[in-house]
Amino acid sequence: MDTRYTSIARHRVRGAVRPVAIAIVAIIAALAAAAWLLIVRPYQQQMRLDAGGAPAVSAAAKAPTQAAPANVQAMDVNQLLAEASKALKEQRLLAPAGNNAFEFYLRVLAKQPDNPVATSALRETFPYAASDAEQVVNSRDLNEAQREIELLAKADPTNYTLTILRSKLDAQRKLASQQQQQAQDQEKAAQLAAQRAATEKQEAAKQAEQQQAQLAAEQAKAKQQRLEQQQQAAAQEKAQPVAAPVASAETADAVLLKAANPSYPTAALRAGQAGWVVVGFTVTAEGRTSDVHVVDAQPRHVFDRSAIEAVSRYRFKPAMRDGVAVESTKQQKIEFSTGR
Rank of each mutant, 00 (worst) to 15 (best):
Q273T: 13
A239T: 03
A222P: 00
V255Y: 05
Y264F: 08
V242L: 09
S248P: 01
Q230H: 05
L215N: 01
R270L: 12
A208M: 08
E200W: 03
A259P: 00
V242T: 12
K258I: 04
Y264V: 01
Q236K: 11
A208C: 09
S248L: 08
K201W: 01
A197R: 14
A198G: 02
A254M: 02
T266K: 10
E209A: 14
A254G: 02
G272K: 03
Q225T: 10
A234E: 14
A197W: 04
Q202L: 15
K201P: 00
A205V: 06
P265T: 00
A247F: 04
A244C: 06
L257E: 15
E209Y: 06
A252I: 07
K238E: 11
E209K: 14
K221M: 13
Q212Y: 02
Q210I: 07
A222G: 09
S263G: 09
A252W: 02
R270K: 12
Q211I: 11
K223V: 04
A197I: 06
R196I: 03
G272L: 02
E200I: 04
E203S: 11
Q230E: 12
V255T: 14
A208Q: 15
Q219N: 14
R196A: 12
P245H: 11
A235F: 06
A233T: 02
A254D: 00
A271M: 06
T199N: 10
A239P: 02
A239K: 07
K223S: 14
A235C: 04
K221W: 09
V242Q: 14
A260L: 08
A197F: 04
S248M: 09
S263W: 01
Q240N: 10
G275D: 01
A254Y: 00
A254Q: 00
Q273S: 06
E200A: 10
K258L: 13
E250N: 08
Q225K: 14
A216W: 07
Q210P: 00
P265D: 00
R196V: 03
A244K: 14
Q195F: 08
A249N: 04
A222V: 00
R226Q: 15
A254N: 01
A205I: 07
Q224H: 08
E209H: 08
P241R: 03
A243L: 13
L269N: 10
L215R: 00
A233P: 01
N261K: 11
P245F: 10
A235M: 11
A274V: 11
A216Q: 11
V255E: 14
E209I: 07
L215E: 00
Q207K: 13
Y264D: 00
L257F: 03
P245S: 10
E209T: 12
A247E: 09
G275E: 01
Q236S: 04
G275I: 00
Q231S: 13
Q232Y: 07
A235N: 10
Q207F: 05
E250F: 04
A208K: 12
P262T: 00
S248Q: 06
Q195Y: 06
P265W: 01
A252G: 12
Q207N: 12
A268Q: 01
A243G: 07
K223W: 05
Q240C: 05
A198M: 05
R196C: 02
Q210V: 11
A204M: 06
K206V: 08
R270N: 15
N261E: 10
R270W: 05
L269A: 11
